[in-house]
């Protein structure tokens, strides 16, 4: 059963990821990204990270991808990009070689250290029928005790990001912006 879940979710993740880099319409790429993010959320559940799976769906699929789609529609860049021409010579083959190289090096390291990873610990309480929110309780205890300072700083970070974006994208009074879209 666990194998079945893994294979299905991995197929979702990989098909979505290939879709993001090969579809020439940005809207299709964003929707492929949703597929990948849902697959990742399923794998989170398979690893007993229930809270993060929910946050993944809400924040990523719900907010970030909608933001992407919003910007795509707002700017009218949803016409298909021509992917058949290659503006820089040999850019794609080189990128492919680098990408496969990066993945290959990481996979080699994983295979090499496989013995250390075989042990599956039991210290994290997985959710059961009696204790359905064990994961949330553990995670919140960690965030609000050990990492409470980082958590507070995060809220400042979000505030700075929001204020910065508003200031940056605000049109100044009297500034003339030609609309080409």
């Amino acid at each position: 059963m666990e194998l079945f879940v893994f294979v299905c979710a991995a197929a979702m993740v990989l098909v979505g990821a290939i879709g993001v880099i090969t579809r020439n319409n940005p809207v299709h790429a964003a929707l492929s990204l949703v597929l990948t993010l849902f697959g990742i959320a399923v794998l989170f559940v398979a690893n007993n990270a229930h809270f993060l799976a929910a946050v993944q769906v809400i924040v990523y699929a719900g907010a970030i991808v909608v933001l992407f789609l919003f910007v795509i529609m707002l700017l009218g860049v949803d016409q298909a990009e021509d992917l058949s021409t290659e503006p820089l010579t040999a850019q794609r083959p080189l990128a492919l070689v680098v990408g496969i190289g990066v993945a290959g090096v990481i996979i080699a390291a994983i295979v090499k250290s496989q013995d250390a990873l075989l042990v599956r610990g039991t210290g994290i309480n997985s959710a059961t029928l009696e204790d359905a929110d064990a994961n949330i309780r553990q995670l919140s205890r960690s965030i609000f005790s050990d990492y409470v300072f980082a958590f507070e700083v995060t809220s400042v970070l979000l505030l700075i990001a929001v204020v910065g974006t508003v200031v940056m994208s605000r049109r100044q009074h009297g500034q003339h912006v030609e609309e080409s879209a």
Partner: peptide, 29 residues
């Protein structure tokens, strides 16, 4: 599936993302 399976999947996903950043020209993508 052991932990290594998840890590290998993550490595492949990271590689695909790397290729995408280098190949695509649309800043949104």
């Amino acid at each position: 599936p052991t932990t290594s399976w998840y890590l290998v999947l993550a490595a492949v996903l990271f590689g695909i993302g790397t290729v995408g950043v280098m190949v695509r020209r649309n800043p949104l993508v």
